[in-house]
Amino acid sequence: MRSRTAWGTAAAVMGGLLVTGCGDGGGAGGAQGAAATASGGFPVTVTDCRGAGTTFSRPPGKIVTSNAAGLELLLRLGAGDKVIGTGFPPGPGTLPGALDARGREVKVLSRSVIPKEKLLASGADLYIDTFADMRMSGMGDAPTDEEFRAAGIKHIYLKSTACAARREHAVTDLSAVEADITALGEVTGARAKAAELVDGMKTRVRAVRKAIGDVPRDQRPTYFFFDYDAGTKQPTALCNRQVAHAVITLAGARNIFADCDTTYKQVGWEDVLSRDPDWIQLGVRNRGGRAATEKGFDEARRWLETNPATKGLKAVKEGHFLRIRSEWTTIAGVENADTVERIAHTLYPSKVG
C-alpha cells in the first residue's frame, strides 16, 4: 500500500473509529450548540458530541488547529491572526487564493498529529479538533479533558467530521458543515462572516438541486470515489457517514457504497466491480503544486486503465473520470459546496452551468 499523505492519514483516523471524546454524533449537527445570550454576543456555549457544553465569555486569542481544515475555516472567517499553530499543515496550493500564503505562515507544530506535550505547552486558549480521539488510533496520545483544563485550553470539535462515524443516519446534506462554520463564527466573534459563508454554500447547493430536480433518483448515475492516495491493493470505500457522501448525493449521483454505515471501510476490488460505477472521481490530494497534483491524477487514471481488476469497469472504458482533489470532497469546508457544483456540471452539463 502506498504511504498516506497527511490528509490521507487524517481521513483514515476519522473513519470507523469509536470515539471516546465525542460520544454519539447523532443527527446532522456539526459543532453546533453555540448560543449568544448577552450584549456583544457573549457568553457563547458550544456543545461537544455528547451534548456537554464549553462556554466562552470572550473570543479566544490564541488558537491551535489540529489540521488545515480548521485553519482554513478560521482564515475564511477573518480569524487567522489568532491561530498560533497547526498540525497537518496545508501544502503549497492546498488552500484557495489568498488564503494559501496566509495559511503557510502559521507555525507548524507537527506535520501530523500534534504531540500531546507540545499541544499542552503551546500557549493556546483554544484547540479546534477535526479528528476523533487519537488514543485508540495508534497515532499518538491525546490530552485528557483534565489536562486540557489544567493547561487553560478549551477543546472543541468540528463535529461534522470528528464525530461522523457515530452518526445514526446517513449524511445527505451539508447542514453539519454549515453548523460548524456558524459555531466557529460565534466563538470567534465573526457571526456576520460565518453567515455570509453559509448563505453562499446554501445558494450554490440550492441552485444545483433545482437544476437536477427532475431527474428521478433511480436514474441518477452511480459514482465511485477512488481514494488513490489511500492505496490500490485494497480499495477504501467512502461510506454514508462521510461528508463526501452528502457532496455526491447533492450533486445528483449515487454513491456505490451508500449502504455502508460508517465513514470509510476497506473493501475488495470485486466489490467495486460488482457495482460497476458510471463515474469515478480520482481521489488525489494536493502534492505541493498544480503540476504535481495533475500528475497524480494522471497516475490514478493510468492505474485504473491498466489494472486487470479495473480496466473493464464501465466508467474506465468510457473515460468517465472527475479530477477533483480529495480535500475538497472529504474534508468539511466551504469547498464542499463548490465540489457539488463541479460534480453536477460534469454529470449534467446541459442542466448545471
Rank of each mutant, 00 (worst) to 15 (best):
A332N: 12
A34D: 11
K62R: 15
W328P: 01
F257L: 09
F257S: 01
G29M: 08
M1K: 10
P60F: 05
K202F: 08
Y223E: 00
A68Q: 12
E299P: 08
S66W: 02
F224L: 03
Q234W: 14
A165L: 10
G312D: 14
R285D: 05
T263R: 07
K62V: 00
K314C: 00
M1A: 13
R323W: 04
N286H: 14
R206M: 11
C239A: 12
T188W: 03
F226M: 02
A192I: 06
G252P: 09
G80T: 07
P89N: 10
A170Q: 06
T37M: 09
A38V: 06
K210R: 14
K317A: 10
V13D: 01
W269L: 03
L73I: 13
A237W: 09
V316F: 10
P277K: 07
A165E: 00
G23Y: 04
G21A: 11
V247K: 02
A121S: 15
A79V: 07
P59Q: 08
D259K: 13
M201P: 02
A31K: 05
H245P: 02
V316A: 09
T45E: 06
F226I: 02
A31I: 10
A162P: 02
A162D: 00
A162Q: 02
G85T: 01
L18D: 03
D199W: 01
E105K: 15
H155E: 00
L99D: 06
V215K: 01
R275I: 01
T182W: 01
K116C: 12
P90K: 14
A309Y: 03
M201V: 06
R111G: 14
S3R: 09
D145P: 09
R254W: 06
S3M: 10
R204K: 14
Q32E: 12
P60L: 08
A142T: 04
R217A: 15
M1W: 08
V284L: 11
